[in-house]
Amino acid sequence: MKQWLRQTISILCLMGLLCPAVTLAANKQTASKTTKVLTSIYPLQLIAGLIGQSAHATGAALKVSTLLPAGSTPHDYSLKPSDIRRVLDADIVLWMGPDIEPYLAAIVARVDQQKVIDVSALPGLHRLPLRSLVEEDDEHDHHDEHHHDTDFDPHVWWSVENAEVIVAALHPLIRGVTTSEQGELGAIERLFSEIKEKLAVRKKAAKAQLPSFIVFHDGLQYLEHDIGVSSKARVVLSDDHQPGIRTLLTLKQRVQAESVQCIVAEPMSNLSIIGKIEGDQPLTRVMIDTLGWGSGSYVDMLSAAYDAILHCGTPSTKVN
């Protein structure tokens, strides 16, 4: 009977009657298992991509993309009609929430909220408070206003613990992933145990070798917290803010008082400002993109940041 069935299928395939239908059905089945995840920013795409490394995601097809084009930021981006279609067509929308990304709020409100994950509202998320430019400064004139609409630092993706919280929230929504709560938690724990192990050596080296430093834009507080260090000051609190003369003077005094040797900036930072706060000894300048553009994975993003911080101990020449 089985031999006859195989022969019949072979004949029908040769006649072009059955195989195309079988192939089409298989393709439809694969497509139906594919979960399209749209993230608002690139670091969330890297974190969502960790799902594919989970042992319990076997057989689950995941397509993760970022709404913003490479190199752009939520602060200066205008939505296009095609962007709106992508938000509405996604199986899951992973974003930072209406307070952090107000430009997306009206569109995300049109999506079935069962398919939406607001990272800023996740239970268990570690939230660090917003910082001033210069800590322990009692004079209000030197404390520029914060330019975020939240009461916590929104750059939560730099914390490995927060990445684990995000993956745990996303994991059950992916088609093909086990629905066993115990199985999910076990897979996530194993995944992040491996991640922490991979990063442990770099983290230890960064903490041991990092000299006194400041950051240009206050977007790396969670990274500092993970390593166990703290910047002595911040030059700007947001991308659209420039420090005044009094602030620059205070920063220069802090650089001298704390023997600051290094400044961590971003590719888009206005580096001309650095010359106004450094003394005769030039500050070593290292670059870390807070949105992780160019990183191939979440671990790559963190590894590159740790490696960049290690360069803070490398002497620099002054650039005018």
Rank of each mutant, 00 (worst) to 15 (best):
L130T: 10
S230T: 12
M15P: 00
P267N: 09
L310F: 01
A265V: 13
V255F: 05
K33E: 05
V156C: 04
V22K: 00
T284N: 06
P74M: 07
I174V: 15
L291W: 10
I9V: 11
V37E: 05
T317Q: 08
V260Y: 03
I227F: 01
L44C: 08
P282D: 06
G124M: 13
G279A: 13
H217G: 01
R175T: 02
Q114V: 01
L46I: 04
P243E: 03
A205K: 14
S120P: 04
D307Q: 12
T314M: 04
T58A: 13
H311F: 07
Y103N: 11
F216R: 00
G313V: 05
V299S: 14
I214C: 00
A168F: 01
S303K: 13
Q209E: 15
I84V: 15
H140S: 15
N162F: 06
Q281R: 14
A57Q: 13
Q7L: 09
G244M: 07
K28S: 05
P81V: 06
T8K: 15
H311T: 10
T178L: 07
L210G: 02
G49Q: 15
T284D: 00
A55K: 06
L67I: 13
V108N: 00
L310W: 01
A163Q: 09
P315G: 10
P123E: 07
P243L: 09
L122V: 10
L133P: 02
V201N: 13
V165D: 08
A305Q: 02
L271N: 04
H225Q: 14
I11C: 02
K36I: 04
I107Y: 00
A163E: 10
D153E: 15
A105R: 02
S132R: 15
R86F: 00
P315E: 10
K63F: 11
L94V: 11
L67V: 12
L12C: 12
V299L: 12
L191N: 04
V93R: 09
S65Q: 14
A31N: 07
D89Q: 12
L133T: 13
W4S: 09
V299I: 15
L12R: 01
L251V: 06
P129C: 08
K33S: 05
I100H: 10
H225V: 00
A168L: 08
L68C: 03
I188R: 11
L104V: 06
I309E: 02
I227W: 01
T179D: 06
H241V: 08
Q29W: 11
S259D: 09
S78P: 01
S272K: 12
H146F: 12
M15W: 10
L79S: 08
Q29F: 09
D144M: 14
S54W: 01
D280H: 07
S297D: 07
K80N: 13
H143F: 05
H311W: 03
D240M: 09
F192T: 07
L17S: 11
H142K: 10
C312T: 04
L68G: 03
L185F: 07
D149S: 14
H217C: 03
V93F: 11
V87A: 04
V299H: 03
C19F: 10
Q261L: 06
R254K: 08
